[in-house]
């Protein structure tokens, strides 16, 4: 592995760390900035993914749709105060094209409600494609494949 490839691995690890920190710190307004303008973002279950079903619990085909998601969460949707803690591990570059990489990673999100109740809310993997843009790496595709088909109560904050 050449040094540039090593550097990319570190950059991609940083990308996921920053992504998790953004969501977990409730900086949702900054979340769309992790994506390209014409990104694809989808949350689905392993059951749907393995059956080739195209459904997304959240399904977006542009960064502006992600912004709309955030403004709906902030201005329209009603849900109890809650926070996630994302643990992202096993970040593996499946394909390295230099300025674009296919990446897979495991995720675990623990959800904590205002009364302190904690739930193992989501476990699964990211199947992503990141591309190098002028201002750093961006996700062109983020596919969140959850191990379970079940969502406890609701899924407001993105994963």
């Amino acid at each position: 592995m050449d040094l540039a490839a090593v550097a990319r691995r570190l950059e991609i690890a940083d990308l996921y760390a920053a992504y998790a920190a953004c969501l977990d710190a409730d900086e949702l307004e900054a979340w769309p900035d992790f994506f390209t303008e014409d990104c694809h973002y989808r949350i689905t279950s392993a059951e749907n993914y393995e059956a080739g079903m195209p459904l997304g619990l959240i399904y977006a085909t542009s960064r502006r749709m992600l912004k709309d998601r955030v403004s709906a969460l902030r201005e329209a949707n009603i849900y109890e105060p809650q926070r996630y803690r994302h643990l992202i591990s096993g970040i593996a570059i499946a394909k390295d094209e230099g300025n674009a990489v296919d990446v897979e990673a495991s995720l675990l999100a623990v959800r904590t409600m205002q009364d302190g109740a904690m739930t193992m809310f989501a476990a699964g993997r990211y199947i992503d494609r990141a591309v190098r843009a002028a201002d750093g790496w961006k996700f062109a595709t983020k596919l969140v494949v959850l191990d379970s088909r079940r969502i406890d109560t609701l899924l407001a904050i993105p994963l």
Binding site: I78, I151, L154, L155, A156
Partner: peptide
């Protein structure tokens, strides 16, 4: 489908 389901714009409240 963004409107409905657990993350639906007009249905997430029904889950809660």
């Amino acid at each position: 489908a963004n409107l409905v389901g657990p993350a639906g714009y007009v249905s997430m409240e029904d889950g809660a």
